[in-house]
Simulated assay, not measured.
Amino acid sequence: MDVETKIKEDMRALGCNSDTKITLAYHLYTHLVDEKLMYDTEYCFNKDVNTLYVVARPSKHAKMNIYVPIPTSFDVTMEFINKLQTNLCTVETGPTINLAFIEGDFTIVIYSFTKGLVDRLAAEKITEQRTREARRSFINSELKKSKEKIINEALNGGFVEDYDCQGSSRV
C-alpha cells in the first residue's frame, strides 16, 4: 500500500466520508510537510462541524496552528469562520485559524483569521487617523529634503553674518 492510500484511509477512519474533503486534506497535509517543512503535522476530524483539518507547528517550539482545507469554489462567510474557530480553536492553538484555499490544480493559498483581533474604527476616527498620517508623511518628506542642510548647520554651528568683515565667517 502506498503512502497516499494509507493516509487517506486513516482520514476516512477518523470519521470523514467525503472523498473531496479527504483529497483536499491530503494535499494540504503533504504541502505542510514537504513544502513548508512544518513540525508535528497531524490530520484531525471534528464531527461537530464535519471538518477534516490539519494541525502543525511552523517551527519546533511554536504553538500548534490549525489549517482547514477549503476548495476555492466554496463561499466562506464570517459565520462559517466563527463556527470553525469555536469548534476547533483551543488554549494550545489560540484564537487563530488558517484557511487553506485549494484550487483545482492543488495550488494552495493560506489566509489567517484571528478572533477578536481588532475592533473596526468609526468613520470619523479613520478620517482623523488618515489626516494625522498625511501630516506625519508631509513632515517626514520635508525633513528628508532638508536633512543634509540641517546636519551641516548643526555640525558647523551655522553661519553668522559679520558686518565688520567682508563676507561671512564661521563661528
Rank of each mutant, 00 (worst) to 15 (best):
V3E: 13
V3C: 01
T5Q: 09
I7N: 01
K8T: 04
E9D: 11
D10H: 13
D10N: 10
M11H: 03
R12N: 11
A13Q: 08
A13N: 15
A13W: 03
G15K: 10
C16L: 04
N17F: 02
T20L: 04
T20K: 11
T23H: 07
A25S: 09
H27F: 04
Y29L: 05
H31Q: 07
D34F: 00
D34T: 01
E35D: 13
E35V: 00
K36T: 01
L37F: 09
Y39H: 14
N46H: 05
V49M: 10
N50E: 12
T51A: 14
T51W: 05
V54D: 03
V54K: 07
V55P: 01
R57H: 13
R57E: 02
R57A: 10
P58T: 11
H61Y: 04
A62C: 13
M64H: 14
N65G: 13
N65T: 03
Y67F: 15
V68A: 14
P69M: 04
I70G: 01
P71E: 06
T72I: 08
T77N: 13
T77K: 15
T77G: 08
F80I: 01
I81R: 11
Q85L: 03
Q85E: 14
N87Q: 13
N87P: 01
T90A: 03
V91A: 11
E92C: 03
E92I: 05
G94W: 02
P95M: 01
N98W: 07
A100H: 09
F101V: 05
D105N: 15
D105W: 00
F106Q: 06
F106Y: 15
F106I: 03
T107H: 14
I108A: 07
I108N: 05
V109P: 00
V109F: 10
I110F: 08
Y111M: 04
Y111T: 05
S112A: 10
S112H: 08
S112C: 06
F113H: 06
V118R: 10
V118I: 01
A122E: 11
A122Q: 15
A122T: 06
A123C: 03
E124M: 07
K125A: 08
K125H: 02
I126E: 08
I126V: 14
T127N: 11
T127H: 12
T127V: 08
Q129W: 12
R130P: 00
T131A: 13
R132M: 05
A134L: 08
R135F: 00
R136M: 05
R136I: 00
I139P: 06
N140V: 00
S141Q: 10
L143Q: 09
I150N: 09
N152I: 05
N152P: 03
N152V: 00
N152W: 07
A154H: 07
A154N: 12
A154D: 12
A154R: 04
G158T: 10
G158R: 15
F159K: 15
D162Q: 12
Y163E: 09
Y163V: 09
D164M: 10
C165Q: 11
Q166H: 13
Q166L: 07
G167I: 01
S168K: 15
S169K: 13
